[in-house]
Amino acid sequence: MGCIRVFLLVFLVGGSILAAVATFAGAGASTVAHPDGISLRDESVRRSGGFFLMYMHTPRYHTGGGLRMGK
């Protein structure tokens, strides 16, 4: 009982403290990828016909879904 009690207390109290720290530190939110900015007025963006096409180079495709799981 002693070990289980200590483990659960540490888990519950410690976990809650960690959850609070992570939440208020903004963990889980992405930081901006381009703080200096990518100009939408650049020739390359305008010429390629769209920002995302220029930015991603490749078409998007889907990698999964319920019907592909054999259900």
Binding site: V32, I38, G65, G66, K71
Partner: peptide
């Protein structure tokens, strides 16, 4: 109006049967 500071994506899917 002109400076892209972040690019992100989201995948949404819903399958049922």
């Amino acid at each position: 109006d002109e400076e892209v500071v972040h690019v992100g994506d989201q995948n949404i899917s819903y399958y049922h049967g």
